[in-house]
Amino acid sequence: MKHFIAFFTSPNFWSIIGNTLTISIYSILAAFPFAILLAIGMNELASARARKTVQFFTYAPYFISTVVLVSMMMQMFDPRIGILTKFLKMLGYSGDNVFGSPSAFRHLYVWSGVWQQTGYNAIMYLAALSAINIELYDAAKVDGCSKWQRIWHIDLPGIRPTIIILLILNMGYIMSVGFEKVYLMQNPMNLGNSEIISTYVYRIGLINSNFSFSTAIGLFNSVINLVLMLSVNKIAQKVGETSLW
């Protein structure tokens, strides 16, 4: 229990929990709609070649390693030669080191993740859309439904179970923000907004060889994730008919 008490009474406890929850919830809110919209957009493309081309270019970033992705971001936002830094200067931005800005850290982390993973996440929704009975679209066309009405009344209800299941699963990882990317993007200037549970465990528990302390924090993290997943699953059962069990 002394390790749990040490963690709960740490002066950084609330900031670490807050950073972890903020980054995780921000990521879910940003990534979820884009994957759904991309899947619906590709499903509406009449040309199979155009659909495959869009899918390739949106799916390809998923294979970029985290180290390479962060290196690309550092180059693009370099204060002197960065392409995006020059663009921001044209818009009136001061040109300071973006990676050293605490307020920019969360936006960089989340939107780079959206760019990298949206194409991959959209595949599951495309699979769900392909399972929708084609006769529903034919009947909607006969009734004079527009494309937007078909999306609203056929596509979205058809993939709703998939959306709910993926949301429940994501809630089970809400406290488990990826370590590697956050650690690579961290520096002394943005540490106040970038320190999360996994990096804190690494710094305090593993670097200092305090394995019992890191294990206690990991157990706390897992319990919170389990409680959140069970709670969201229970809500999904009461609101609708879709749930994990």
Rank of each mutant, 00 (worst) to 15 (best):
G119S: 13
F87M: 15
V227P: 08
M76K: 10
V232D: 12
K181N: 03
F57Q: 03
M74N: 14
S15H: 02
M185K: 06
I235N: 04
L244R: 07
I132T: 09
I17N: 02
A140V: 04
M72P: 10
S212M: 09
Y120C: 06
V67L: 13
Y183E: 07
G100H: 12
S222A: 15
H107L: 15
F105D: 07
K86T: 11
Y202Q: 11
F13H: 02
N97S: 15
V201D: 00
S176R: 09
T9G: 07
M90G: 15
F63I: 13
Q55I: 03
V142E: 07
I25N: 02
L244V: 12
F213N: 05
S101V: 03
R203T: 10
R51Y: 10
Q55H: 13
S231P: 02
M175L: 14
V227T: 08
L21I: 13
L108F: 08
I174V: 14
D96W: 11
A39L: 02
P102K: 11
L226H: 02
F32A: 10
K234Q: 14
Q117Y: 15
G178L: 00
S71G: 13
W148F: 12
P157N: 04
F105A: 08
L206Y: 09
I64F: 10
G172E: 06
K238D: 14
G205L: 01
A46L: 10
I217V: 15
I134P: 00
T58M: 14
A60K: 05
L38H: 03
R49G: 00
P102Y: 07
I164T: 10
T242L: 08
M171Q: 01
R203K: 15
Y183K: 00
I36Q: 03
I5K: 11
Y200M: 02
G240M: 13
S209A: 12
S222H: 06
Q55Y: 08
M189P: 00
G192Y: 01
G82A: 09
K89T: 12
N210C: 04
I174K: 02
V232R: 07
G119L: 10
V114G: 11
F8G: 04
K234G: 10
I64E: 09
L169P: 01
V98T: 15
Q149P: 01
L156T: 01
M73P: 03
H107T: 15
H153E: 00
F105V: 05
I16S: 03
G144F: 10
N210G: 01
D78F: 08
P102I: 11
I123R: 01
Q149L: 01
L126C: 09
A128G: 11
A48W: 00
K234Y: 14
S71C: 05
V98R: 13
G205D: 07
T85F: 10
Q117W: 14
S65Y: 06
N208I: 00
I196N: 01
I134H: 12
L226E: 05
S176E: 09
A139C: 03
P33L: 06
N225K: 08
K2V: 13
R106P: 01
T20A: 04
M171V: 11
A128S: 15
G178N: 11
T118L: 09
